[in-house]
Structure formats: structure tokens, C-alpha cells
Computed example of a mutant assay.
Amino acid sequence: MREKSIAVIKQLFENEEITEGIFEQLKRDDRKGVQALIRKYERMQEKEAQQLIAFKEMCNFENEARKSGRKLIAGVDEAGRGPLAGPVVAASVILPQDFMLLGLNDSKQLTEKDRDYFFTVIKEQAISYQIAVISNEKIDQVNILEATKLAMYEAVRGLEQQPDHVLIDAVALPRLGISSEAIVKGDARSVSIAAASILAKVTRDRLMKEIHQEFPMYDFSSNMGYGTKKHLEGLQSHGISPYHRKSFAPIRQYIG
């Protein structure tokens, strides 16, 4: 491999064309650039190995459900319980048993770029998925917890294929009429819930960016409705928008 330039060797790594034999030759190449590529490759391999272990651990709830005879297992999660404005969004998703997406995690732990990529992969590979949006007006009518449950119920009941077991992030849904399990911090412990978390968050973030176009003074495209400094400054200067949650204590002072 000595005759090959570092640029060519880099391309071999990027194209995943490095065989075990080539790798052993490269390890004997004393060029600093080649050794740097090797170290980068080894770090990537180690990261992928750790991600695989983490992914398999996140499949434990699904595997246990399958052992008990369940076949269609849905994960459910929500996005938007805490913001001062905008809807709450819930998603449900049934993944195939052989689903594999290394790096899948609680959506809040991922970059926006990764979330957008995972969002597309999950929708393409899911057996079934559904997303439900509950408006800020409904939140004000029934309170945020009940609105969250309503979104979750709609997301599950809207699935084209109904599951025989449901894994839910933290919230119990007794009226489902289906075997279910509420898991604390489930979006970091179950692949199905993590996938639902991504569908819900990406959907809600995109909705808030659309609302931002109508009401840019609140900076919704950056804060997603949370009470940041710019958001509060917008409230002080302009009052509330039609998308603010009037039942939330920080908003009440700006009403009237």
C-alpha cells in the first residue's frame, strides 16, 4: 500500500473497502497521515461496537414481550409537555423484529441532523406508525397531562395495524384495552419508544418552525415554545399569540 497516496487510502476507508489484509499492511506504513487514518478508523469501530451493545440492551423490553407471545409491539412517546406555546405531539410506532439503527436514543440526546435522518429511516422501515397532534386550545381545556394522554391514545388507535402490546414512556394508558407497560425513561431504554420519541419531536419541531414564520417575535424556531429569554421578551413586547397555552402560569400574566 506504500505506493498509494494518503488521499486514495482515505477514500478506501470511506468506501469501506479496507480488508483485514490491507489493514495489516497499513499498520506497518509509517506515514503520519496513514497512522492518523488508522486511529480514526479504530475509534469509529469502537464507537460502532458500543452502539451495537447499547442497541441490543434497548431491545430487552421488546424481546421479553416477544418471549411471552406478543408479535406486534408498539412504542409510544410524546414531545412538548413543557413549552409555553404550541401543541403536544405523540407518536406510536411498530418496528420489525430485525430493525437495526445504531445510535438510536432518546430524541433529546441526538443532534437535529441525526433526528432528521432517523425520522426518515424509522418511517420507511416501520411496520406501522401514527402521529397525533393536540392543540394548545385543547391543552387549556383539559390540562397538559390529559392532553398528552389523549395524544398517546390517538397515536396508538390510529395505527393501521393494531399492536398486541404497547410500551409507553412513563405514562400509564389504562383505557387502551391492550396489554401495555409504562417504562420510566423509556425513550432511553426501549428502541420502540426511542423511535416514537424521534417521530414526535421532529414533527413538533417542524410545526413550531412553521408557527415561527407567522410569529417570529417569539423565536419559536429556536426555542420550540420553551420560555427562553427571547421568548419572554417577545411576550413582554407583543403579548400572547394564538398558540400560547393560557392555562400555564407564566403566560397568565400576559393575558388581558
Rank of each mutant, 00 (worst) to 15 (best):
Y117R: 13
Q11T: 15
A54T: 05
E78G: 03
Q45F: 03
V184C: 11
V8S: 13
I211A: 14
I22N: 12
T203K: 12
G227P: 14
Q253H: 11
L173Q: 00
F23H: 10
A182P: 10
F99D: 01
A147E: 09
N15Q: 13
E233I: 10
D187C: 04
E112W: 12
K4H: 09
T19G: 12
K246V: 13
F215C: 07
E3M: 08
F220R: 02
N60T: 14
G227C: 09
S241I: 01
I251K: 04
A196S: 09
V191T: 14
V93C: 05
N223I: 05
I127L: 04
I9V: 15
I53D: 08
Q213E: 12
E233T: 10
E57W: 12
V191R: 08
F55H: 01
I193V: 06
A170M: 04
G75C: 01
E16C: 12
M217K: 07
I183N: 01
I198H: 02
V133M: 14
G69V: 01
A85W: 07
A195H: 01
A132Y: 07
N136G: 14
S190N: 06
Y243N: 07
M224G: 14
K123L: 02
E46H: 06
A79Q: 05
K10I: 15
A90V: 04
E124F: 07
P216D: 04
F118T: 02
G33R: 03
G69N: 02
V121Q: 09
I18V: 08
E181I: 03
I9R: 04
T111Q: 05
R28N: 10
R39M: 12
N136C: 08
D29H: 06
I6Q: 08
E62C: 02
E64N: 12
S180C: 08
L150K: 13
A194K: 00
D169T: 00
S107D: 07
D114G: 11
E16Q: 11
A249S: 12
G82P: 10
K27F: 12
P216E: 03
E46R: 04
I122R: 03
E62K: 01
Q35H: 09
E42C: 13
Q130W: 13
I127M: 01
L232Y: 14
A90S: 09
R81S: 08
Y218G: 12
Q213V: 08
A49M: 05
G225F: 02
F55A: 00
R70M: 13
A200E: 05
R252P: 13
R175E: 14
F61A: 01
I22D: 11
I193S: 03
V166T: 03
L26E: 07
Q253P: 06
M58Q: 06
L159D: 02
L150F: 14
I139S: 08
A194L: 04
V88N: 03
Q35T: 08
A200R: 00
K246W: 09
K149D: 05
N136R: 11
I122N: 06
V171R: 05
A126R: 00
K138H: 14
E62F: 03
D29E: 06
